[in-house]
Structures are given as structure tokens and as C-alpha cells.
């Protein structure tokens, strides 16, 4: 398959799938958190101990990025589904927008989270 020149849109197509798979597995964390909240203080403290740890924060940070990137990349696919954005410059712009926007939104969310007391 080396006859293809590797393009940004091709790479981001793989990233869309990879972030989708990561979000799929990551729902286990969401389930654990909700079930713990419904179970009681001890179970909830376990979740907080994990999400508060360095590794836990890295995972949640990665999850935030995967979610934001997959959402913006998905909106890009939605624009294509509607029949727009197929010109070379348009698809490049949409793809760069998803890539940069995903990182920007992730950083913004974490700044707001820390500013509103999530760092407690």
C-alpha cells in the first residue's frame, strides 16, 4: 500500500477511529464513577483516589482530548455527509480545525476545571 502519499486527512481518519475505541474503553471509568456515587462514600473515595493520582489525571486528560477531538472530527464528517467541504483546501481546513480545536478545547476545559475548584 506504499503507492499512496500519506495525507493529513488519511492520518486523521485513523485518529478518529482510535479516539473512538479509546472512548469506548473509557466508558468503564464513567460507569465506575456513577456506580460508586450510587454505592456510597467508600466506593466514591476509591474513584477519587484514582482520578486524583498522576496516572488517573493523565487518563482523564487523555479522555478529555479523545472526546473533544472525536466530537470535532465527527462534525467534520457530518459536514461531508451533507455534501459540503470536499474541495482540497476545504477538507484540509476542516481537518486542521478538528486537530487544533480538539487540543484547544481540552486545554480550555482543564483550565476551567482547575479554576472552578477541580484541583481540590
Amino acid at each position: 500500500m506504499q503507492v499512496y502519499r500519506w495525507t493529513l486527512t488519511m492520518a486523521l481518519s485513523i485518529v478518529h477511529r482510535a479516539t473512538g475505541i479509546a472512548l469506548y474503553v473509557g466508558t468503564l471509568l464513567l460507569v465506575w464513577w456513577l456506580v460508586a456515587a450510587a454505592s456510597g462514600p467508600a466506593a466514591y473515595a476509591n474513584v477519587q483516589a484514582f482520578t486524583g493520582s498522576i496516572i488517573g489525571r493523565l487518563i482523564v486528560f487523555g479522555y478529555t482530548w479523545a472526546l473533544m477531538h472525536h466530537m470535532l472530527s465527527g462534525i467534520r464528517h457530518f459536514v461531508w455527509d451533507l455534501g459540503y467541504g470536499f474541495k482540497a483546501n476545504e477538507r484540509e481546513a476542516l481537518t486542521w480545525g478538528a486537530l487544533i480545536g480538539g487540543i484547544a478545547l481540552t486545554v480550555l476545559i482543564w483550565i476551567i476545571a482547575y479554576a472552578t475548584g477541580g484541583g481540590r
Binding site: 456513577l34 456515587a37 462514600p41 466514591y44 476551567i112 476545571a113 472552578t116 477541580g118
Partner: peptide, 16 residues
């Protein structure tokens, strides 16, 4: 999620 951050179980359960 922002509202829930940093709260203990009792606080989180109340919001949820």
C-alpha cells in the same frame, strides 16, 4: 462534571 469536581460522595449524590 465541573459541578461535581472536588465534591465528596454526599455532595456528588445530591447533584446527581
Amino acid at each position: 462534571i465541573m459541578m461535581l469536581l472536588g465534591r465528596n460522595q454526599a455532595g456528588a449524590a445530591q447533584i446527581l
